[in-house]
Computed example of a mutant assay.
Amino acid sequence: MLALRLTRGSHPLVLLRRLFVASAAAGTGFLLLSTLGHAAGHPTAAGESLVRLLWCAAPLAATAQLAASVARTDPAARLHRGMAAAGLGPLRITLLAAASTALSCLLGTLLALLVFLRLRGDIGGSTSPTGGALGIDSAVLGAGHPVPFVGALMLLSAVPLTAVAATAVALRPRSDSAVPQAEAEPAVKAAGPSGLPWGMAVTAAGVAIEAYASRGAGSQGRPMTFSDRIIGSPPGVLGGWALSVLGLVLAGPGLVHLCGRLLCAGRPGALRLLSGRVLQRESRRLGRPLGVLCAVASGTYAAVKVYDASSSRPFGPLTVIGAAVVLACVTASALAAALESRSARAHTSAALRRLGAPRSVLRRAAALRALALVIVLGPLTWAVAEMATLPLLP
């Protein structure tokens, strides 16, 4: 009840972020239900239905990451003093944030269930013309075949349960939470993230494994579809691709810290020094979401390139929905991390303005930080995508 009251009294921007979580949960829930409908309508194609279910892992993970990012930026999660006065400790605050996340995800999954039943024709007596307008064939959803209600509930429950678990882990009470920020800052002021060499090593190992496993795995003179080329590839190829993508995620904080050090290199002026110090300080907060964004961008580029080389058909509507959910979630997670970083240094920005720094300086510093991240992360993401794609091309 308290979570519902806090949701009703939240700022419109907070409600908008929660609505975005509900939309992502709706898209993921619809994809999960579509796999169940395909399995019900094609009982002899169990392998294809299993592959469709495995592909839903990406939007499910992206939705969970978005839910955790939105929960971290929720103002209610930062009101520790007021919540403590009301009798809510750190553990209950975490449970409250998890309840809010569950409420948003349940709303999205309910919407997904209604849309799924409407497109199948279970609600309204006939298949919806909207499905044809969207390019979704009702046969893909198993129209005319009964769908097990318990199975649908089990699949839909995976969305809120995963999001709640991710939120609880992200907001779990830490032993160092009671240490004042002013006392904890000097100990970590000169220490940067240590994941850059490990991430680059994992990426290089993944590309090497993929190249080694792809030798002799040709198409034997026959054309291969996108699914055949991806799923039918040797396990080492897919494992190497996954390792190369994981390396970008691990190297994200180190890459952001490296951008800050490059801005501060030489004899920097006030603008470069301010931008570089902010990136170094916020590298741990910004690095992981940006690493995930780079990994998704790299995987998307590789998938599109392999698809263009393997098939002349356009992407199906379910593939477009899954890709849109993943891209939107990781982009929104990176933006949420940027908002969290901005809130964390609000006192510093206010002090600079009191000292006479104009707002234009702060805006130019933000633009310089964004430009440095694009210059460093953009070519690296493209290079990893190109190297990971070569073994999969015909």
Rank of each mutant, 00 (worst) to 15 (best):
L4I: 06
R8M: 05
S10H: 03
P12F: 06
V14C: 09
L15M: 03
L15C: 01
L19A: 15
F20H: 05
A26V: 06
L36E: 09
G37Y: 07
G37R: 04
H42C: 08
E48V: 07
C56D: 15
L60M: 11
A64S: 14
A71D: 05
A84S: 14
A85W: 08
A86F: 08
G89W: 02
P90N: 03
L96D: 01
L113S: 08
L114N: 04
F116E: 09
L119A: 05
G124I: 07
V140L: 13
L141S: 12
G144F: 04
P146C: 13
F149T: 13
L153E: 09
L155E: 14
A165S: 13
A166M: 05
A166Y: 00
A170M: 01
R172F: 12
R172C: 06
S177M: 03
A178G: 12
V179M: 13
P186V: 02
L196R: 03
A204F: 11
I209R: 03
A213L: 02
R222H: 13
T225H: 02
F226N: 08
G232V: 04
G236Q: 11
G239Y: 00
V249E: 00
P253S: 08
L262V: 10
G266A: 08
P268S: 06
G276D: 04
V278R: 14
Q280L: 06
Q280Y: 05
E282F: 04
R284I: 06
R288W: 12
R288S: 12
P289F: 00
L293V: 00
C294I: 02
Y301W: 11
K305N: 13
K305A: 14
K305I: 02
G316M: 04
L318Q: 01
T319E: 15
A323N: 07
C329S: 15
A334S: 13
L335N: 01
A337P: 00
L339W: 14
S341L: 05
A346M: 09
T348E: 15
T348D: 15
V361H: 14
R363T: 14
A366V: 07
L368I: 01
L373Q: 00
L377C: 12
P379Q: 01
W382F: 04
A385T: 10
A385N: 11
A388N: 09
L390K: 15
L393E: 10
P394H: 02
